[in-house]
Design a protein around this nucleic acid. Sequence first.
DNA 1: TATTGTTATACTCTATAACTATA
DNA 2: TATAGTTATAGAGTATAACAATA
Lengths: 160, 160
Amino acid sequence: MALDARRMQAFFALKDAGDLLQMLMNDQLQRDGGLSYLQFSLLARLAQAPDGRMRMTDLADTAVHSRSGLSYQAGKLEAAGLIRRERGDDDERSVTAVITEDGRELLEKVLPGHIAVVEQGMFEALDDRQADALADALEAVCERLRDLVPSATERRRKRA
Amino acid sequence: MALDARRMQAFFALKDAGDLLQMLMNDQLQRDGGLSYLQFSLLARLAQAPDGRMRMTDLADTAVHSRSGLSYQAGKLEAAGLIRRERGDDDERSVTAVITEDGRELLEKVLPGHIAVVEQGMFEALDDRQADALADALEAVCERLRDLVPSATERRRKRA
DNA sequence: TATTGTTATACTCTATAACTATA
DNA sequence: TATAGTTATAGAGTATAACAATA
């Protein structure tokens, strides 16, 4: 097979794997906690941040495509009592999203099933050496892509 | 780092890489040919099938989540003259989607830019050995996931 | 009675731009 | 004047279920 064709196939495998995993996750997360995958990933990002807090803009830049999309999702998470929003101390314009105790509890509740899906769907097909290689390569790719893809903030600036 | 944490990170890298690549693709495909990524992938799947033809059900099972979703997209592609739909010969219920000459031309037109995005976003970050390992691992994962995730047809049967 | 494909309906999500408030 | 965040609007896409036609 030509090199290009093999690489294109790897790309399609990456896309398909991500999409198929998301379908499994959506089912599992909905069943175990009434969460969409996007909502789960927002909660997970907050939970691992220092003190469970992040500025809305920073959260939008790492997680979601537009700020309005984040406001929409944050509204749903806040209505469900899983996060709350606080005005920033230093900069009165900014808003900080904070995961609540309920949010952490729900995350704990859905996490085992989530990990099981990742294990079964992604890693049972690989031996340890392959799994390591996959993790290394994906992280390198991801880092490169983050430099390449303009953040929500940069996109907004460009429009203006 | 615990094994679980490292694996979860690999999973998030997979999801993020796929999402970031899709953002780049959507821009490029829209610019070069007015196509969404989903429409492009449907055309690409048809183009590589024998005679450029595939039954709607088979196409739905490999590409898209629900049959109605495929009908919707096929309607747009047909209106743009990129595919046409024919009644099946053997089974009068079935419909076969066929890529048109215009469809193949458009695919040729957007493909160089598409390959360039994959090269720059995905493979420039990797050496040849890493790229091979990534391709192998992703294909193993993908194959496993295809067994695990119920197809559109199976989902429909389950509901009934 | 089961299956193929389409469609009607309702819903979720997204993005753009307009807006408010602060820097 | 620029930035942070929200919101109003409008559009794209999705899924479910109901449907018609064929097996």
